[in-house]
């Protein structure tokens, strides 16, 4: 594996082997000394051209638990604000000795460009509304830990799917692993053309309360009213995971959210804090999954630029 850019072209075998590897790192993180020397001497650069706290911290924790050194970059304090191009920034960081780049960027495909320019292994930490592949892996791991498998599970993804890179990565990952995915959103928040997507579509969250997993996406408040739905209360009435709806879920069903949550909008506070909401497990698994991906990319594979 040279890069980790998207989940679209990953097979079930690829995904399962990454999840198995991730489980080994769950064990490592559970040790008294949760750190191994595997990537000693390697340097992982974090290039987050979009504000992010949780994903950047998670990648940093993962790199450090593998004994890699990290370099961090944030756009507000960087030469980008002085007009430096993305390409020059990437090449500069390569020249400083980075062995791999973890990149988040608002523009779709920026990571593919950076991979071309630098020849370094690139991990996609989110590009535009396109892909967020480590999020999909940590989500799959969290589901697998609860149910043992994704095969045959029914998973509903609820919310702003059109603008969600999490949804795009999750959909291909969940369905490759054998789950049946239903998208739940107003049509203004669904992708324009779903031809070829392995999904069903439902128009209200009430239609999918019998699923095994409810996956809630963050609703950006600024979308309300402006252009894609009339108001937040109207959204909550059709798509919010309220306490009442939570009570109608199956006994073993779980609720997930990629964070950060809007309590009271897509998820009621009581639901967010319920043991069957796996939101903090998702966060913990994120570190293990990112260790697995970093180890796959840097753990001794010979890279020819």
């Amino acid at each position: 594996m040279k890069h980790f850019l998207n989940t679209d072209d990953m097979t079930r075998e690829d995904l399962e082997s990454l999840l198995d590897l991730s489980e080994e790192f769950v064990e490592v993180l559970d040790r008294t000394i949760p750190k191994v020397p595997a990537l000693r001497g390697k340097t992982v650069a974090m290039l987050f051209f979009e504000p992010s706290t949780r994903t950047r911290l998670s990648f940093e924790r993962a790199a450090k638990a593998l004994s890699a050194d990290t370099m961090s970059f944030s756009p507000s304090t960087s030469s980008l604000s002085k007009g430096e191009s993305l390409k020059d920034t990437a090449l500069t960081i390569k020249a400083m000795g980075a062995d791999a780049l973890v990149v988040r960027h608002k523009s779709t495909g920026a990571q593919w460009r950076i991979a071309d320019w630098t020849g370094l292994p690139v991990l996609n930490a989110g590009d535009g509304a396109h892909q967020h592949p480590t999020q999909a892996l940590l989500d799959a791991l969290t589901i697998r830990q609860h149910f043992g498998t994704l095969d045959g599970l029914r998973i509903a993804i609820v919310g702003d799917i059109r603008h969600s890179r999490v949804a795009r990565s999750d959909i291909s990952t969940f369905s490759a692993l054998g789950a049946e995915v239903t998208l739940v959103a107003p049509s203004t928040l669904l992708p324009v053309d779903l031809e070829g997507w392995p999904v069903k579509v439902a128009g209200s969250i009430d239609d999918v309360l019998d699923v095994d997993v409810i996956y809630l996406l963050r609703i950006q408040a600024e979308r309300g009213g402006a252009s894609v739905f009339p108001s937040l209360p109207e959204y909550v009435s059709r798509f919010g995971m309220t306490r009442e709806r939570f009570g109608r879920l199956q006994e073993n069903a779980i609720v997930m959210h990629p964070g950060p949550m809007n309590r009271g909008v897509e998820i009621a506070p009581e639901v967010a804090d319920h043991p069957r909401a796996r939101i903090l497990e998702q966060v913990s698994n994120g570190v293990a999954v990112r260790m697995a991906v970093l180890f796959r990319l840097l753990g001794g594979e010979v890279h020819d630029d």
Partner: peptide, 9 residues
């Protein structure tokens, strides 16, 4: 179309 929807553009 189909490709823009997949790419999220």
């Amino acid at each position: 179309g189909t490709v823009s929807s997949r790419l999220g553009m």
